[in-house]
Design a protein around this nucleic acid. Structure first.
Lengths: 176, 176
DNA sequence: GGGAAGGTACTCGGATATGACCTGTCCGAGTAGGAACGG
DNA sequence: CCGTTCCTACTCGGACAGGTCATATCCGAGTACCTTCCC
């Protein structure tokens, strides 16, 4: 019953990526600097998020990461499952049938009651995570959080985000 | 997000101990044999349960383990917390303040919204575990489980439980 | 024969090796941008 | 002056060590029962 600390980093990065405009990207090194983490290690978790289709990665000098879909359609459950794996925390090893007395396999067709109870609790856990969207986190941070911290985050995002070439068609790169 | 397999063993042992009569005890080695586990390792988990006042241990040749209170007053949450520890699974490292830009400490008085959301989910998890009593597990096993498996468990308990000296006053040990 | 003392066997309890997983780091593949060169 | 080519710098991605915790095991402390000895 212990979550890796990569979960915290992943959620923070995702909520930061929710603040970038349009299809602009943000390098993983910038986010690592923002949270005081090892860049190479953070890449590992961001890679898991992109493998789960939560983030998109763009290679190249102007590359980075961005959300693969709007923040309203990303839940905390998506992020936690992507980083920690989709298997339930409690795995029934069916130790009840490991005893010396060997019963017929037909005696174990009914699922283990303990397993059912543990999985019911885990469904409640996942349901609570699923009803919290990433947009809720961002909105709560904007309204409830300290204005100074929020302003600093916005400035950091504006400084490090990299607009993409396709978006530069909409906005001419230079006005002369 | 992964529970140790000792949790499963602990719950199975506790539900087995719920079937012993009165203040009789059952040795840990018997339960280890019943589930095909390493006796020495199972003792470790049973020791944690007795440290949490869920089980009582009696040393000596007629010793063993028994429930410290009725099964109606033991929940799955008690067992899980005793084995896995009481700390929440998600630990907020406050990485938001680890960045290069140093804000005043007053900017972080409000708790992290991510931490609040994760803890809310964990409260739901624990609440679901807390509403399942050990007596429910046993009753469900007696009614829903396979009769052959239930009979085998009862026979195993009757064969390995050790009545205590104080109870032998109520039931004379030998009838001649 | 009765009681007491000693020995034995069985139990739990803690201290000690081993292994797997998470953590942390490094180097390589790929691409966009810019500079240099030729037309 | 414009287009093409090459180069460089920056990015992600996967492969490689180290640390920490769960797993597994062994040996010691303690107690009840049994045997033996003494009265």
């Amino acid at each position: 019953m212990k979550l890796g600390e990569g979960v915290e980093a992943a959620i923070h990065c995702a909520s930061m990526l929710a603040s970038v405009e349009g299809d602009a990207t943000m390098p993983g090194a910038a986010m690592a600097e923002s949270f005081g983490l090892s860049p190479s290690y953070l890449l590992k978790h961001l890679n898991m998020l992109s493998a789960a289709r939560i983030l998109e990665s763009v290679p190249g000098p102007a590359g980075g990461y961005r959300l693969a879909r709007p923040a309203e359609r990303i839940t905390l459950l998506d992020i936690v499952l992507a980083v920690e794996g989709r298997e339930p925390a409690f795995r029934c090893g069916e130790i009840r049938r490991n005893g010396p007395v060997k019963l017929d396999a037909s005696a174990y067709v009914k699922p283990c009651g303990i397993n059912a109870a543990m999985l019911k609790a885990e469904r409640a856990y996942r349901a609570a995570l699923a009803e919290t969207k990433l947009s809720d986190i961002v909105a709560d941070y904007a309204t409830e959080g300290d204005p100074r911290s929020f302003a600093a985050s916005c400035a950091f995002v504006a400084r490090h985000q990299r607009p993409q070439k396709s978006s530069s068609i909409l906005q001419p790169p230079k006005q002369t």
